[in-house]
Simulated scan of single mutants.
Amino acid sequence: MSDEKSKLLQMVRDGKISVEEGAELLDAMDEPGTKPSGAEKELKDRFLRVHVDSAEAKVNVNIPLSLLKVASRLGNMIAGLIPGEARREMAGRGLDLSKIDFEELMNLINQGLEDGKLVDVDIEDPVKGRIRVEIYVE
């Protein structure tokens, strides 16, 4: 079994994605044209990481960059895990995670986007406390 499929199954086991989402991603991985090319194989040890830390939710989503093309289907799911106040604050700053173009992100990464933070939002809400959202490539 490939390393990517093992990581995907681990995400299902950890409850980070549903069984249905995992099955969709496995199917997409088996479709022609979704196998990693030589350039993409270099990405196998890098991840797109989404971390949310608040009183309402603690979320850690780690998507191997080699799966990012098929993981674009998870964009709305990831956005739904972020507490409403943080989503509103991010939207106020012009960031809507559900509108991230993962294919364009892959193009940027393939063109040499350095590892590091892409998004860093830290909100102190008087009612809900601190909300922190980080998205980065590592």
Score class of each variant (00 low, 15 high):
S2D: 15
S6Y: 13
L8E: 03
G15N: 00
V19E: 12
E21L: 03
G22D: 02
A23C: 07
A23Q: 13
L25T: 05
D27R: 15
A28R: 12
A28W: 10
D30T: 10
D30K: 03
E31P: 06
G33N: 04
P36W: 09
K41A: 14
K41R: 15
K44I: 13
R46W: 03
R49P: 06
R49G: 09
D53M: 14
D53K: 15
A55E: 09
A55T: 12
A55R: 09
V59F: 15
N60S: 15
V61Y: 08
S72Y: 04
R73W: 07
R73G: 10
G75P: 08
G80W: 09
L81W: 13
I82M: 06
G84L: 08
R87A: 01
M90H: 10
M90Q: 06
G94P: 08
G94T: 04
L95D: 00
D96H: 11
S98N: 00
K99A: 08
D101K: 12
F102P: 00
E103T: 14
E103M: 13
E104M: 12
I109R: 02
N110V: 06
N110E: 02
Q111C: 06
G116A: 01
L118T: 00
D122N: 15
E124A: 04
V127N: 01
K128Y: 07
R132P: 08
E134L: 09
E138K: 04
